[in-house]
Design a protein around this nucleic acid. Sequence first.
DNA 1: TTGACAAGTGAACGTTCGTTTACTATAATG
DNA 2: CATTATAGTAAACGAACGTTCACTTGTCAA
Lengths: 206, 206
Amino acid sequence: MIDTKEKILLTALRLFARDGYEAVSVSTIAGELGMTKGALYKHYKNKRDIFDSIVERMYRIDAERSAQYDVPADTYDADAEAYKSVAWDSIRSFTTAQFVFWTEDDFARSFRRMLTLEQYRNPEMAELYHSCIVDGPVDYMRSIFGEMTASGVLTDVDPELLALEFYSPMFLLIGASDIKQDRKKHLDMLNRHMEQFISCYGRKEN
Amino acid sequence: MIDTKEKILLTALRLFARDGYEAVSVSTIAGELGMTKGALYKHYKNKRDIFDSIVERMYRIDAERSAQYDVPADTYDADAEAYKSVAWDSIRSFTTAQFVFWTEDDFARSFRRMLTLEQYRNPEMAELYHSCIVDGPVDYMRSIFGEMTASGVLTDVDPELLALEFYSPMFLLIGASDIKQDRKKHLDMLNRHMEQFISCYGRKEN
DNA sequence: TTGACAAGTGAACGTTCGTTTACTATAATG
DNA sequence: CATTATAGTAAACGAACGTTCACTTGTCAA
């Protein structure tokens, strides 16, 4: 089979995401694929090589997604009222897309869980974990809110605090989705949170 | 030494919290204490017994803390304005105490990290993790906010949404404290969040 | 047809795992 | 003083670990 290497990577990721890297044996990965562990070494030079390939893959996926979502936001030449609704709309859809990505996309969901399990052993994984789903998103929202405050679309509360208020419910709901798979309810809570946030901090008028 | 059993428990917890249960060997635990692994079996019948003792210990600690913090809140016989400030003050101090507990108390902090690492393997650990630091606190705040809304001290937004808005920043900051040990900043953010929350949702007048 | 190569088997490697056992030193108890 | 319990060591157990290797296929190009 031509995509055996891919199957190994995905199976290993699924197991790493449940049990942690150390707790998953090469035999188990091979067993899940109906082959012997010796065969794995035709595709990866060792167990760590599989792990590294997973991380490398995620870097690639993340780069592609960033490129896709980096609308330069230079389109605020229209009137203020239009800019306002466009800004909130794009925040809404971006946030929802991020939530769906981290909770429903098989690779991203497993990768996030794997990072969760590796964060305390490996400083590099800790850094990656936080830049992906803790500090990273908060910093990103802070920079957006900073611009919006400057444009007068937001009340002038400290953007860092606003970013925390905005993102942390999403962070909690992502974690909650790992156990209760009540997708509808979590998405609903996320949307209600965003509306609440906008009604609290979005400026009604100029 | 009379408290060897205690030292074993604390050392094992510290290692479990960093590497995960499976990745910690009995030899390593013994080695950290300067003894051979055979000696461990004079105190615990096997490795799992150490883990179970840790969980049992946390149950005990949690029960003691609940008993201590369960002020029956039956003291809202004073005038509304006084009740209001008393309610917010106790929420503030309770929240801060919880944050300090989960981020600075050695046992609680390690236990929380251990649960984080075990949550995907063991449904019982998943349940415990969420009841301790995800759904549990949210549900608790929801019931408090429900009462407060009924008393007219809070705007009548859905208490479940309010609980999410209130607790999730604390949840994120607890996680953030695991890497950046910027204790002052996290406590500061938590306090600013609470003031922001109160100014948003606390009724200024009756 | 032949030869090279890719992919998988199964056994073996040395190491480490959790656990048990025989034994020893120390300290408390009759 | 004799004895019994406690807390430790050191060695061994079988099983599982990651990894390697000789060997067998099947496929495809020369």
